[in-house]
Design a protein around this nucleic acid. Structure first.
Lengths: 148, 148
DNA sequence: AGAATATTGACAACTAGTTGTCAATTGTCT
DNA sequence: AGACAATTGACAACTAGTTGTCAATATTCT
């Protein structure tokens, strides 16, 4: 039975790999009309969710990726006028990054697309099943963080 | 309540993104002593699991990534003597790809590492929770495949 | 205050994977 | 058999992210 659980765990790992690819592909398609990508709206989402401008390292921490990965997307988003840099009184080198007006409007549209899609995807899945799934993934995630 | 489920779903999506990164990082560390990477042992695993040599497109289909992504890893694995190309009587251009003796021995070691790690990770997680999680992820995955 | 240490953005090189093109091969249809 | 379409490996260019280095800025310790 210990065997069974380990085997189940391995299948979950493989499923996560597949789902990651599918989610990114679907996300890219979803925001393609807005000329965005999954990577870009995730950065926008981190700032939108925080409700206040964040520095690049803060965004990276919130997203669980490296600051350099974030920096690339931020630079591109600033170049295209979706995000803006605000002087940071606490740090000369590290500006606060915010959504521009254009960025906010764009993100509202992303939010709409996402909420429609999420509702259609969650259709017919029980609250319990979703809760158990999320909770299990959270436990696994926290173990991984401790372990490394 | 439909709202709740969509929100839960969104959280699961974000958790999958994080877990994907963590799993890859942990997998890389796990097989680092064997001079492998997550990408390489996943290709090896696809062939090992099939129990017979596969062509590159077959491996790609099994893994859910593109044939070109697989091809890169296969070329590297062949160059390092871990996999070998076998003449394919059914297709002059598309050889069957198998593990070499060295590759089989390596994969046995990977398998050991993975099963130890999986057991420690699954520790304390109930069979039901793991089953519900896997099943829910499978439903989501199959919906994504249909949808696109 | 001054020195050692950590954080930060820019830059470059790298891994992993995708997309598109090309020519060779294979499959299908009549 | 012959023509047209699909599959395949090689190659190149691309996105996304990581790692490492550097100089500038912040932080900490005494």
């Amino acid at each position: 039975m210990k065997q069974d659980q380990a085997a189940l765990f391995t299948e979950i790992v493989l499923k996560v790999f597949r789902l990651n690819g599918c989610f990114l592909a679907t996300g890219d398609k979803l925001v393609q009309p807005l000329e965005l990508t999954s990577a870009k709206w995730q950065v926008m989402g981190a700032v939108a969710l925080a409700g206040e401008p964040l520095t690049a390292p803060h965004i990276a921490e919130a997203m669980g990726i490296t600051r350099q990965g974030v920096q690339k997307q931020v630079n591109a988003l600033v170049a295209s006028g979706i995000m803006v840099l605000q002087q940071n009184p606490d740090h000369k080198r590290s500006p606060r990054i915010a959504l521009s007006e254009k960025g906010k409007q764009l993100y509202d549209q992303v939010d709409d697309l996402n909420s429609n899609w999420s509702q259609s995807m969650a259709e017919g899945l029980s609250n319990e099943a979703l809760q158990v799934t999320l909770q299990t993934l959270e436990i696994i995630h926290s173990r991984l963080l401790k372990q490394q």
